[in-house]
């Protein structure tokens, strides 16, 4: 009986080992959005190209869409831009842009130069809406369902791989949901 007690350390070690082993290869800095399953926070933002035009949460309802947070000061945003164009033009998934903490003139020039993948570009010069959304660094890409509910967030570049493995299946799933 007392001998059995001596096996406690090895059992605890095995349990700890399994947990540590499962942690290998995962990105420990990966952070899920706090808004998953919740509606996009209320906003009322001007369109980048046309400041007279205001948009609110209605914009993100009715269909499954991507919301891409970008800025001209963000080099990774430049890297993923062509992929976003492919997603909106070739794969037919609407992408809403959120120009985050950016200079309007620079942003307009950027879209001229690289092309505009966005169905609408919202302008958030002070980053207020971004803050409410829990954005902590551009680029971030959100999957928003028909009801305007946040379903997923990807932080960092949208690579073809991310699209194929993560975003596309999710979009399919929420398109098929009722």
């Amino acid at each position: 009986m007392r001998r059995l007690l001596l096996f406690v350390p090895v059992i605890l070690a095995v349990v700890l080992g399994v947990v540590l082993f499962a942690g290998i290869g995962k990105d420990p800095s990966h952070l899920e959005s706090a808004l998953i399953g919740k509606p996009v926070p209320a906003f009322s933002l001007k369109e980048l190209q046309n400041p007279d035009k205001q948009f609110d949460n209605q914009l993100l309802k009715g269909k499954v869409q991507l919301l891409n947070v970008w800025a001209t000061w963000c080099p990774t945003c430049r890297a993923e831009h062509s992929m976003l164009i492919k997603i909106s033009r070739q794969y037919g998934v609407p992408v809403i842009g959120l120009d985050y903490k950016d200079n309007r003139q620079d942003a307009l020039a950027w879209l001229d130069e690289l092309g505009n993948p966005y169905s609408v570009v919202l302008s958030d010069p002070e980053g207020k809406f971004g803050f409410d959304l829990g954005v902590y660094g551009a680029p971030e890409t959100y999957v928003i369902d028909r009801e305007g509910i946040v379903r997923f967030r990807h932080v960092g570049e949208v690579t073809p791989r991310v699209w194929q493995d993560t975003l596309e299946p999710l979009i399919q799933k929420y398109r098929e949901a009722d």
Partner: peptide, 28 residues
């Protein structure tokens, strides 16, 4: 990750074998 796996194996073999030895041989 590759290094992680190697180190994990090293760690697991060392710790588990010595604690098992302990469980069988330590005086009670």
């Amino acid at each position: 990750p590759e290094r992680g796996v190697f180190l994990m194996v090293l760690l697991a073999v060392t710790v588990i074998s010595s604690l098992t030895l302990y469980a069988f041989r330590a005086p009670v």
